[in-house]
Structure formats: C-alpha cells, structure tokens
Design a protein around this nucleic acid. Sequence first.
DNA 1: CTTTCGACTTAGGACTGAGGGG
DNA 2: CCCCTCAGTCCTAAGTCGAAAG
Length: 772
Amino acid sequence: MTVKLKGSSSSDEEDLPLSSTIPRTKRKIEDSDDEDIKSGSVITAANVKREEDKSYDSDLALSKVASPKKKVVKRGKRSSSKVAGRSLSSTKQKGIKKDSRAQPPKKISKRESSVEQQDADLDSISNEASQDADDFKWWEKENDDDSVKWISLKHNGVIFPPKYEPLPSHIKLYYNGRAVDLPPQAEEVAGFFAALLESDHAKNPVFQKNFFEDFLDVLQENGGPRNDIELKTFELCDFSKMFDYFQLQKEQKKQLSPQEKKRLKQEKEEFEEPYKFCMLDDRKEQVGNFRIEPPGLFRGRGAHPKTGKLKRRVYPEDVVLNLDKEAKVPEAPDNHNWGEVRHDNTVQWLAMWRENISNSFKYVRFAANSSLKGMSDYKKFEKARQLKDYIDPVRKDYMVNLKSKVMLERQIAVACYFIDVFALRAGGEKADDEADTVGCCSLRYEHVTLKPPNTVIFDFLGKDSIRFYQEVKVEKQVFKNLTLFKKPPKQPGHQLFDRLDPALLNKHLQNYMPGLTAKVFRTYNASKTMQDQLDLITDEGTVAEKILKYNAANRTVAILCNHQRTVTKGHAAAVQKATDRIEELEWQKIRLKRAILQLDKTEAKKNPNYFAEVKDLVKEQELLIHKRVIEKEREKFTKKFARENEKRKFDNEPPLPDSQLKEWMNKVDELESEYKREVETGKVEVKTSDVDKLKAQVEKLDQRIENYAIQLKDKEDNSQVALGTSKINYIDPRLSVVFCKKYGVPLEKVFTKSLRDKFKWAIESADENWRF
DNA sequence: CTTTCGACTTAGGACTGAGGGG
DNA sequence: CCCCTCAGTCCTAAGTCGAAAG
C-alpha cells in the first residue's frame, strides 16, 4: 500500500518526513532540494547559473548527437515552420457572419400560453416541428457568448425503469441449503447479484462485501426474511437458482418468433417516441439518455472501494426537470410528483437526479447530434487549433523553465512537458473512497522510474484504471529534475509534483492563451498527429487500402492517448486459430513443393531458394499439424451430423443413419493413413503430373497466407487499442472529411451514421483545403 | 486562499444486430 | 444459407475544470 501525501489531512502530513521540508508554497530551490548539492557546492545564484550553463551545453551536445534518431520528443512536433503560415485561420473563423446570438425568442414569448396551445407545442415534438433541426446551420452563425444555452426548451420528461416484478414463488435464494422467503425489495437486490453470478464482479471480494451489506440493509428495512432464516454470511448464500432462472428467461426471449420480437420492438419504439425528442428554440432536437438509470449494483472500474454497492431506484421525487417557463410540465408517472421544476437556460440538461453512490448528479442531456453539443464540440476543436499559434512560446518556456530556480516553476515545466509530449491528463486529486488512479499532477514517486542517463519508465493506472506503461527517453534536464523531485526524504506514496495541482497548472497555461487548459493539449496533439499522419498518405491504391492507412493513422493517435481496450475473451484463442490456419497453409504449400520435386528432380537445382522451406519443416511439427487437421475434420463431420439431425427432427424427418457418419469418418481415416504414409515414406501422393499446375497452386497458397498474415497482424495490432475514443473525441472531424473528399473515399467508410450526424457541422463546413 | 459542487467531456465494457465468410 | 463475428450502439463510470462555498 502506498501513502498519500497530498489530499490527506494536515495531521497525517505531520507524520511524514517530507512535510516540513516541502511546504506547498512558492519558494526558491534550496540546497536540500537541489540535486546539485550532492557535489558539495553551496548553491548561490551565481553557482546555479554556472551549473546551468554546463548542463545546458551538455544538453545541447546530447541533442545534436542524438536528435535524428532519438525518441526524446515523439512525433517530430518541433517542426512548426509549416504551421506558421496558416496562423490566420483561427482569426478568420470569427468573422464568418455577423449575427448576434441568432435564436428566435420573439415567437414564443409573444405566444398565448393557453393549455391547448402548449399541448400543441408538445405534440409538435413528435410531429413536424416549426423548424427542422436538419436545416439549422448554427456553424454559419457567429456565437461568442454561450452562457445562455437556449430561449425555449420543451420536452416530455424521462422514462423510468419498470417496476420490480417478483420472481415466481419457486425461484428462491438459498441460505445454507434452505430456501429464503425474501420480501420483494430484498429479492430484487439479491437478483441484481444473481444476474452477475458468472461475471468477474461476483468473484470480487469487495463487490461481494459491499453488495452483502447493502442487501442486508434492505432486508432489514423490509422486515427480514419472512420465514425467519437469519442471513449472516455471504458465503452461505446460493444465488444459482435465481441465476438459472434469468438465463432461462433470456433463452425464452431469444426463442420468440421473429414477428413477436418485431412487435415487441415496435411497441417499445412507440412508447419511447415522445421522450426521444425535445423542442429547443423551436427546433426539434434529439435527447440523449432519456431513460433514468435503473437500480442495480454499482460496477466501479478497477479497484473501486464502493464497487458492488446498491445503486438505488430513482423516483420522480428525486428528479429535477429543466424546461422553459411556458412549457407544459410533463406529468410524473403514477401520481408521483417531480422533485423540482427548474427554468435554467444557462445549462444544457433536461433533467437531473442525485445518485447515491458518490452523491453526485446524473443528467439527462441532448444527443450528440444536437446543435448545442455540436457547438461545444466545434468550439473545443477551434480552441485546440488556436493552440497552434501559441504552442511555440509554451514549449520554449517550459524548456527554459526546466532550469528555473523556483521549485514550483520547475515542476510546472516538467508537468507541461509530460502533458505535451506524453499526452498525460491533468490528474486531479482523488478521495479515499475512489479507485486509486492518477494523472500528471497526481503522479507519485512509485509511478516514475528513472534509468540513467535519461530513460523514464511510467507505470501507473490512469482514468478508468487503464494502465499507462511507457519506457521513454526524455530531455536530459527533465531527467535531472525528476531525480530532484524524487530525492530523499521523498519515498513511495509521496507526490512527485508536490507543489502542483491542476488548478495551478491551468492558471499558468491561461497566461499563454485564454481558455488554455491541460486537456486542450490532448486535443491539439491528437489532431495534429492525425493531420501529420494523413499528410503522409498519397492518393494511390484502392479505397480499401486508403481506409487501412486512415485506420493506421487513427491508431497512432489512439496509442498516443493510451486508448486501450481489454482483449476480448476469445482473443488468444482466435489468434491461435488464425496462427494454426496459417501454419496449415504453409504445410500444404510444402507438400505441393515436395510433389513438384518428386515429379522433376532438376527443379531443386534450378531454384534452390524456392524449395528451401521444404527442409525447414520438422517432422515433429508436421505430425502435430497432421493431428490437428485430422481432428478438425472429425469435428467438422460430427457437428455436421448433429446439426443435420437437429434440423430433420424439427422438420419431422427421419434422422440420418449412423452409417452416414461412419462413412464420413472412414474418409477421414483414409486421409489420416495417407498422411501417415507420407511421413513414413517422405513421398506425397500426387494427383497430377503437371508441374506448372502445382506451381500455380503454390502461388495461390502464398497469396492466401499473405492475406491471413495481414489480417492476423491487424487483429493483433488492434487487439489492445481502441480507435473509437480518439475518433469521437480528439481528432478534428474535419480532418477525416478532407481526407475523404481528397481521396475519393466514401465518408461512411470512416464515419458511422451516428458520427455523420454528430459531425454534420464538420461535413458541411470543411472544404478540400481545410487544415487543422 | 482552499475545498466542494455542478456541469460538462471523455471513457471502456456490455449488448445487439447486420453483414461477411465458410 | 447459416452461423458467428465484430462493428455500432447503448450505458454509465470517471475524468476535467470553472465557480460557488467555506
């Protein structure tokens, strides 16, 4: 376990050796702080100067020698000359059209607000709208001030999850072998756990403990088990009957006839229709998450202390609605009342409630394709583009400040370097009842390992407890500073940047550019990287090849941002299967080559390279392949037999005779003995005497092997990388639009339907010459 | 000032249905 | 054609950051 220094109370801090030496105020680097003290010299201003000069020179030497191949700075970002000429774009953007805050307030406010009129308004949500959101081109309008988000806002409220349906009386939780008669409220909670019985959560002791505590609470509140069984330990609970029942239900749902499924789906659609849309400034716009989150067990990520706790049911009384003053307030279901009705047009949520796990708010908001979301997305990317014009001084400064005499400034410099070069997040402090994850400012001693002369190993859990592991080379001075920041008495558990927090860092960044914060760097560097990668692609090859290259560029960005996904359950198996298949194809190829040699011995001399691999195949390996191939064949026929009979049974036909299966199996046996002979005699039983034909077959196999190998590599490369997050949040969509336009790639090959909706503004505004 | 709150973006995993290969 | 895979969508957790509260 580690000790947290920051964020803990001051009394905790007093126990720690560092507390007295490092108050969190700005001050000069003192002797005890600076690594240079090791050399025994007292650091005066002059001394510092001299020392710095020396190190500056050596840094320079280092960069001179190593810069062409070193990885000190990834992605060659210091090449700003290309960017410089384009600096007007961000200013240009501002003056597209003068049209101050162009929403139409007059119509609504003047309007009669009789009940009938309002009903008509709401109906129009699902019928035709006064204005279709589709032809509202907000991005062609000037909009500087967005503190007011809307003038009018009408919606139909939210959908609540269905009431709990008690299980059939024969489905019970068992305790120590006895059926427990639970009150429905407690049964529901037990059911939440039972549903997860085969997931990893159910095996997590923290999850079990948290669940069990909350479960017992609910049980207590509702009078305990009705048949007086006292539940004491989790281990004696048997949820399997409940689990089985849920499985059965799932199965039954699957078994429904297609028509039945369709009908149910349509019913659901019809019921949800009114909630899917709202009227925003008289335009019909989509609502995002209009369903209130159902109760369940909290599934925290990573080692979350609260994982497994009961996420309680939300009632209308917990919900705050937000609409305009004239809007008809939708009726709360079942004679309930809304917690509150608000008319706050400075926010973009339609409803909210407080959740009970961390006591924070959940919001019902507009969908990603809405104008408001689009606007903030656009602004985000414009802000990132703006950074182009400021990045040089920012970088120059942090390089200079790496040598600042003020500790805080050095820490800021290193933090900026990390954020810029390695795309770290800001890293706010976290509470004890959250998972222990970190970002830049919250990095601790143990998260950074230093390997002289200038290698840094990052190893920590970031957002969502995703591991960040990188072994990188850094600027010499960064390395020196890190050594300094880790100097005793600092030890594991202590903050690396003990003077720093995101607020401070962001305040520093605002000095360069209004609105500049740590997260802007991620957007900037992601989009910049994408631009650079796309620039490398030429207008050659097929559309499919271009898409492959686009995805490769996308992957570069995803890796930069450390966007990972856990390898799917079947991944290892899938890779093994693909590898096996390639191996089998290789083997087939070798057999063909052997056959060629048998037919014409002179071939070997004519082209020894071509036949080299024939000798490479080891006998043991070949035997294994044989075994695998034969096994697969047997399995294939067994399955075919079973499936065929299943079908016949369904069609009321007589099953296939066993003799059929036997016949198939005999064929496999034959094949098996053929292979056996082949190994014994070393001779392939050739079916043709045409050498050219065989060669053609070899060629075909080569092609197939190649294809499979590429597919496999792609699969491997992508197995741990999630491309979606960067595409959705970090890469300026206009880059993709330009790429597609320029190279004749259909946009739908890179953007799904929902992304095309979300990025409508980009699709319609970017021309071929647009650059990030 | 520092801490907490509120509102927003960013994130990976679960679920599901369309389409691609055997 | 059928199965199975995987892309696309849904869900909601977990960040960031400015502003209010203390």
